[in-house]
Design a protein around this nucleic acid. Sequence first.
DNA 1: CCTGCGACTGGAAGCGTTTTCAATTTTGGC
DNA 2: GCCAAAATTGAAAACGCTTCCAGTCGCAGG
Lengths: 346, 346
Amino acid sequence: MPGIKDVAERAGLSIATVSRALSGKGNVSAQSRERAQAAAAELGFVLSYHASSLASGRNHNVGVVVPSVHRWFFSSVVEGVSATLLDAGYDLTLYNVSEGEERRHSVLNDFLLRKRVDAVIAVSLELSEAEIQQLLAIHRPIVGIGGPLPGASTIRINDSGIAEAAARHLIQLGHSRIAHMTGDAAYEKDFRLPGTRQGGFTKAMRDAGLTIRPEWLISADFTIQGAYASARQLLGSSMERPTAVFAASDEMAIGTILAARDFGLRVPQDLSVIGIDGHELGELFGLTTIDQDPRGQGALAVRRLLAGLEGGADTAAADTEYPTKFVIRSSTAVPPVDAVLPGKRY
Amino acid sequence: MPGIKDVAERAGLSIATVSRALSGKGNVSAQSRERAQAAAAELGFVLSYHASSLASGRNHNVGVVVPSVHRWFFSSVVEGVSATLLDAGYDLTLYNVSEGEERRHSVLNDFLLRKRVDAVIAVSLELSEAEIQQLLAIHRPIVGIGGPLPGASTIRINDSGIAEAAARHLIQLGHSRIAHMTGDAAYEKDFRLPGTRQGGFTKAMRDAGLTIRPEWLISADFTIQGAYASARQLLGSSMERPTAVFAASDEMAIGTILAARDFGLRVPQDLSVIGIDGHELGELFGLTTIDQDPRGQGALAVRRLLAGLEGGADTAAADTEYPTKFVIRSSTAVPPVDAVLPGKRY
DNA sequence: CCTGCGACTGGAAGCGTTTTCAATTTTGGC
DNA sequence: GCCAAAATTGAAAACGCTTCCAGTCGCAGG
């Protein structure tokens, strides 16, 4: 294991100069730089990041806390974060806190405070003010994606706005019997999404003078399977059926489409379905959706952090609204003409 | 930022004793231990892992290299790895090398050699012998999941065996016109899966005296969407249609089922479909599959590494075959009785 | 009461860099 | 060519722990 000392000897330079030459900081003559680099290459020298971090206080490492790496949104964000971080020469320490409260607590209170990370990206996680302050206290900037972080920077889409737009899309097509599939209460806790999106839905409906039937307000766990089960109940049991479903996520929209097919309902002729996300599978199902580009959000979060870290200035907390894109495909259309007949089955 | 020094002062002990007390190693009197822990708690002291690692040489950090975190198998493995690592107090550094060769190269040659990780888990990645030796040279044990790693430990399922079993399942049901959807050639490079599974398929077919029609040997990119497109071609264009499809992954099996439905084919009455994986969505589609429990594989990989790291002994390279479970659901059945009629359309 | 041994403890030497500081060498301007 | 300013360099002091190495202390055995 060659150390910087060996490189220095071989290059005929001092340790200090080699350090400067290899890190690119400080003034080093071109000649010294070359010699140092050559010697390092010959010896196969690789910086020890421990020593480097210990001495400099910079880790080149960002912690990413996600509720799960197994779900579409989160893994998309992680991919975006990962690529951008790797490009910048940073490591990414992943904290997957899927297994509940105590795991989450230990990550926040033990792992993150070990000073191994320069900054933290929290995805769809609501940290308490205390947790945030604790991190900020040890000079670890935080940026949140898709979750409210009081006192820290966040990147989020305009959830209520796009939910409203999605609902309005259906309304403008002529639908009035619109169901909404939201997230289970369990997801409300951290993500806050279900409520916000449902709020947008409610607003659009009210603005249009439409009533929201409680029995058409269903929920699922954000997965295709879960939504499928909920949608089967909705479509199979109610006397009167909605002509359109606005699902709070693409996966749930797809589950709904699959359930509709089970009942012989054609999408969009018999039932319009719209989602939110921009899931890759959407195309296969012709799903109309609002693309929120999670990879891009992840990449942006990293650029934000890095700018702060390398720029030096403790960038003030800022909330950025990430732009979304309305993607109209074939899962939404005007309602069936006979939609008024109650109890009709197709 | 309290340091161990502050804790020592507050506890009225020496730095050395505090270190021993907090780490649990070495002999420390119960009284000292308590005092040290109390002082640490009062001060909110958290070990600096840099200093700790630098001094001790142990990182409490494992690097995980995955081709993508966005696909089912990989994210499942990562979840298993993550949970087990967190339990053991280890950090997980994620290297997502999805963006091609140069990314992969930089991770292997720059990032991993920075001595930040104690060990490396490579998922479905084929490392060259040189790359492996390089890591082993700096005493970083490697364990591979689902990919061949010459010279390192691996955990893998018996790919050719289960593929054979899957095909045999169809054959025993009475199918003789069986198609196989394998992975694109692009995936062969690292994963080696497509070929191996196809090998199992071939063997089962040959053993049963059945012919493999080249036009029924199709491939896709392991995604639902990709498989859907390929399956549409298979089911829509060929004069004669297979009565069963064996897909090399559950996602591809699901894509196949969706394509079949598009053509009005009932599964399993008109077409049997079997996959491999144990994907959560399988249940929704009644997919018969072979569950390979990737979470469990990830967890096992970690336990293996940890045993080696903490046990001290450089555990010899060992290949473990991870057990799989045959899950029979409703997507496979006996072939239709009129299946012999060529060109029949349903 | 002395010896020997094991359990504890503290001092201090690293671990492998970065960075400050002062010294030395160049460079540019006249 | 001469001088101040700028560029370059090396010695050495951190960085915050772990751990080796000697002690120190208490106690059982003789």
